[in-house]
Design a protein around this nucleic acid. Sequence first.
RNA 1: GCUGCUGUAGCUCAGAGGUAGAGCACUCCCUUGGUAAGGGAGAGGUCGAGAGUUCAAUUCUCUCCAGCAGCACCA
Length: 649
Amino acid sequence: MAQVSLTFPDGNSRNFDKGITAAEVAASISTSLGKKAISATVNGAHWDLQWPIEADAAIAIHTMQDDAQALELIRHDLAHIMARAVQELWPDVKVTIGPVIKDGWYYDFDREEPFTPEDLGEIEAKMKEIINRRDPVTTEVWERDRAIAYYEANNEPYKVELVNAIPDDGQPIRMYWHGHWQDLCRGPHLQNTGQVPGNGFKLMSVAGAYWRGNSDNAMLQRIYGVGFKDPKALKAHLTMLEEAAKRDHRKLGREMDLFHMQEEAPGQIFWHPNGWKIYTTLQDYMRRQQDRDGYVEVNTPQVVNRKLWEASGHWDNYQENMFIVEVDEEHAREKTVNALKPMNCPCHVQVFNQGLKSYRDLPLRMAEFGSCNRYEPSGALHGIMRVRGFTQDDAHIFCEEKHIEAETKKFIEFLAGIYADLGFHDWSIKLSTRPEKRIGSEESWDHSEESLGNACKAAGYDYEIQEGEGAFYGPKLEFVLTDAIGREWQCGTLQVDPNLPERLDASYIGQDGAKHRPIMLHRAVVGSFERFIGILIEEHAGKLPFWLAPRQVVVTTIVSEADDYAQEVVAALKAAGVRAEADIRNEKINYKVREHSLAKVPVILAVGAREVEEKTVSVRRLGEKQTSVMSLSEITTELKDAALAPDLK
RNA sequence: GCUGCUGUAGCUCAGAGGUAGAGCACUCCCUUGGUAAGGGAGAGGUCGAGAGUUCAAUUCUCUCCAGCAGCACCA
């Protein structure tokens, strides 16, 4: 019999009969490993114990101790078990797909009536029952025709479509059985439903999802579940979700009195004094950074005639998402159709186009805190993170092709400094390359992609390539922040655009005396201020760094005899540039401390008879229980420094 | 935009076919209290908007608006 040579993680190799299964390999090593094995990795692929090994390979056997593999298998089996439970409860429901995702899985179903929360409870109970049956999980490879005939006979049209979609490139069409229940699946799976921890999962929610992710297709019902190895891990996950909910910017925005939104202006923000203080503090900081980095700041119109949007190409592509403002003939000589600007670039080109530009003017870095309005689909709106009215820290660098690399490097360094100042150290770069539908020559794509990659390397950063994800006119960099609870946010971006200067006829006079087209680099660091402030709030759970905190200090009185002194302390702090206010209300100190702590005021100063006498303050910092006594001059000096933005220290 | 859910006082929420309730917040009074809620009294709501069914609708039905979760979208 033919042999295969398998190499184990320790470097040793052994020969086995060709076609041996991973389970047999595990059992050949030791009886206990044979029992504990759950799957293998064969040549880098996660391998079902039942699958035969037909060629020489590197192999590693996994047990439940291997988290990555164990969780993948558990969640994958749970997806199947859930689908089976649903079909046992409601045999008419059609099954579609059910992949593993972060922390769990989902499965999409086609069913007339919506699933209710009560249904979820029933499904969960049925799943536990199935797990307790300890049914064997088995697998077979089928011919395509047989699979299609089977699914047609069973009235599972989605599965027929899936089988048909499997490319004819030799990959097996694999069937899995969990007991009598069957599903098309590429695997791998556990060997027995009883191996799935019956108390480590929970069904979380139902929501609509389009078949195959396409909004032209039918809407299915998706049930989400989370699954772990044991109830403790499940509990920890649920607790984490509760913690995340506590730092929701919409909740904190209300509690800290930062902003509100209301029906009459969906997707737009009413900033309250506290929130606006954060906004302007951040914007002032950004403006100083831009000034230092060689940008000029401009400001451009909000309401612009459609002619410009037609010329830029936005009218054709994004009309549906623009706020259209029509001025009728009663108000003007002739009817005009305008749109609120959804982006700033066409206006910036208009500024660039005023007067003749020389190659000596390039690179020209034109910045605007550009207020934009986009008619986002209603379902996309989310607190202040995704809105219809927002302001970008937008800028366009007009340059020559040869400038791209150096300008990009300069920008990455600029952005890195700002993220560091704002307390974000965990971020990464993604480089999106040429998509299938594109304009421009291959040479110019080569050059821009290479320039962006080189710039990242030159600035000392790695990047991940997103193949084909670039815009139709040029490649882009995306800068992705990871926040305190592991969520990713794309904030910064840099896009190479030779298209818009072409469409809007921007030019400069080159050294050769002839007209040339500049390239535009669209770039932003925070992206939208609204969204970025939302991220800041959630990152810090409302406890913003002192310099950004809208209310930095509250001076609370313990007895009313201290009222005058409290005002004196406030005056001293204000003179030092600290945002301070007095709380001389007739309330107990406990009450005031609680209230201001909940409002996330970073420093509470309490003053009573002793402090008045000694010209001191009792200092209580947010998050700390103990207090300390400092002289008025000491605390003023300290807070004066703390109140400065990082770039002013 | 799509699927589902939700909309009652400033906030968090209870309630029911016969035009509403709690806690906190708010106002006033008492209290001057040393670091996360002192006590008492009071005021406050066209029950998201419109239409329909009904003797009667905030409650049932429909339409619309907004929000939430997810999907799709994000120049």
